[in-house]
């Protein structure tokens, strides 16, 4: 893990890579001072469906080039930390780790569901309480309570959980339900990282050991642990 050049959040430019769903996205953010709001330098959507995960790296390369930057010019990286599609999350994380490894950059792991609150045309997510839900298959959803403060900071507002789809409304308990569906355009967006405050809650993470929050164990592991009544030993 690199020696951190700062003890609090970065200034920029920062590359954000988000791929909790097949609708991947990337963004370059920067700010003049840690007290300033983030400014979106540029962003791009990367459709990774149908096995087109290969598009993400060229898109990052193009985004950096378009901003007149190379990876050497970045001050930090941020990665959507899940939960979501196992493979998509890993691709984003592998790219993030490779860039961070090469350039000794700190990595911030941003909860993906916090990046899914739709912004208004006027800018920024409307203040209020939300429950962001992402299909977790087998009739379940990953559900994350989220609060947007009057000054438009997006915060975790309770523990994330995997809940039955039919229990979403009850779990929301009056909060606005944001259901992630790539087809309807509601999905985590990298540039929404600008609404997550100073990121100090999300990193820097230890590069070697960090992995996304997958939201589920591998099925074989679930069966093994059920059979043996104990956690799977570390490899």
């Amino acid at each position: 893990m690199p020696t951190l050049p700062f003890s609090v959040a970065p200034i920029g430019p920062v590359l954000v890579i988000e791929a909790a769903t097949s609708a991947g996205s990337i963004a370059l953010l920067e700010r003049e001072d840690r007290a300033d709001p983030w400014r979106v330098v540029s962003e791009a959507a990367v459709s990774m469906g149908s096995g087109r995960e290969d598009l993400l790296t060229p898109a990052i390369s193009a985004l950096l080039a378009g901003a007149g930057l190379s990876p050497a010019g970045l001050s930090a990286l941020a990665c959507g930390a899940g939960p979501g599609s196992f493979t998509s999350l890993r691709i984003a994380a592998a790219l993030t780790k490779g860039l961070a490894f090469s350039r000794d950059l700190p990595v911030f792991a941003l909860p993906s569901l916090l990046l899914a609150i739709p912004s208004t045309p006027a800018g920024g997510p409307p203040p209020g309480r939300y429950l962001v839900a992402l299909d977790a298959l087998r009739g379940e959803c990953f559900a994350q309570p989220v609060a947007v403060t009057p000054d438009q900071r997006v915060l975790v507002d309770g523990a994330a959980a995997r809940v039955p789809r039919e229990a979403l409304a009850e779990t929301a308990d009056g909060a606005a339900l944001v259901e992630i569906a790539v087809e309807t355009g509601v999905h985590p967006v990298a540039s929404a990282a600008r609404w997550l405050g100073d990121w100090s809650s999300y990193g820097p993470v230890a590069l070697d050991g960090w992995e996304p929050t997958y939201g589920r164990l591998a099925e074989a592991q679930v069966k093994w642990e059920a059979t043996h009544g104990r956690p799977l030993p570390a490899s």
């Binding site: 790296t57 390369s61 990876p71 890993r90 691709i91 490779g98 860039l99 490894f101 090469s102």
Partner: peptide, 12 residues
């Protein structure tokens, strides 16, 4: 995982 880690090293 290996392919994208390698691509990132190459890009960086």
């Amino acid at each position: 995982v290996g392919v994208h880690f390698a691509k990132a090293l190459g890009l960086a």
